[in-house]
Amino acid sequence: MGVLMYRWVLAMLLLGASAWAHAQTLTVSAAASLGDAMKAIAPLFEAQHPGVTLRFNLAASGVLLQQLAAGAPIDVLVTADEETLDRAAAQKLIDPATRRVLATNALVLVAPAGSNLAGLDALTGPGVKRIALGKPGSVPAGRYAQQALEARGQWAALQGKLVPADHVRQVLDYVARGEVEAGFVYATDAASAAGKVRVVATVGGHAPIRYPMAVASDAGQPALARAFVQFLASPAAQAVLRQQGFGAP
């Protein structure tokens, strides 16, 4: 190998090593209902932080908490309810000083697009055999649905019809495919499946739906994680969330 070629190869190797050293991956565990919004926000943040790649871990909030408690390498945690982040704080899994609310949402009852389901009262009727909702123990949307049905006095009567799902997007899929007559999802989920499902009713009688976020206590990239949390509260990120149908914090 000639001297010039050797120097060129060495320079390329050094350049690659330098780029690798500066490359950073930030792992964000977020509620499944935030998936589309997070993917739209990612390039905006990455453009401001060359060499940084956002990696999203999307699942039910309860599952995300279990993963963090088990030692999963997570930098930022965003849940679909205050209760789950409260539990994370109680276990000292997050930095409480970084906690803030990202967005809000609404719970809706949806049915397949061609359904003539009239409202929440119809759920107890013979025309409804299966109602999908997230598992209340790990899926906040399911917990909100349980609170609403209990407030209406319907929870006990509907037990034989309930189809549990691992996360809210699974509920949406069940309804869109016509595998159930109805399901409880967020308004943002319903909007993402326009033409496949229709909103039967906006549901009340539950705790406010807020999405809190915080930096994980054992974040591998704590400074970058704090920067991302701050970015999520910025006008640019909030504009994306509004476009996706989320409410202001």
Rank of each mutant, 00 (worst) to 15 (best):
S234I: 02
A236P: 07
A194C: 06
A47V: 10
F246L: 01
A80G: 15
V78H: 06
Q146P: 01
L10M: 15
M213F: 07
L10G: 06
L241G: 03
A182K: 02
D75Y: 12
E150N: 11
D86R: 11
L14T: 03
D166S: 14
L4F: 13
A237C: 05
I209S: 01
E150A: 06
D121R: 07
A80H: 08
A11E: 09
V240H: 08
V163A: 08
A111C: 01
Y144A: 13
A151T: 07
G16L: 15
A47C: 09
S18E: 10
G160L: 10
A21H: 14
P249S: 06
A70P: 02
R55N: 05
V9A: 14
M38T: 03
G220F: 02
A60Y: 06
A72H: 01
A37R: 01
A89F: 08
A182D: 02
A156D: 15
A201Y: 06
Y6V: 13
S29W: 12
R210K: 11
A233K: 06
I74Y: 01
A207I: 06
R143S: 15
G195S: 14
M213R: 03
H49V: 05
S115N: 07
A59T: 08
P73Q: 03
Q146H: 05
L224W: 00
Q67H: 11
K129M: 11
Q91I: 09
R99N: 02
Q67V: 04
A165L: 00
V197P: 00
N57C: 11
V101C: 10
A216V: 04
P222E: 04
V139R: 06
G51S: 09
R100S: 14
V139W: 07
L162N: 01
P208E: 12
I74T: 07
I94K: 03
D189Q: 14
S115R: 04
G178I: 03
L58N: 04
R152Y: 09
E46R: 08
L14D: 04
Q230W: 09
Q24M: 06
T84L: 09
M213N: 05
L54N: 00
E82A: 15
Q154N: 09
A90I: 09
K39Y: 11
E46K: 08
P235N: 12
A132S: 14
A216K: 03
A248D: 01
P73L: 03
A31E: 15
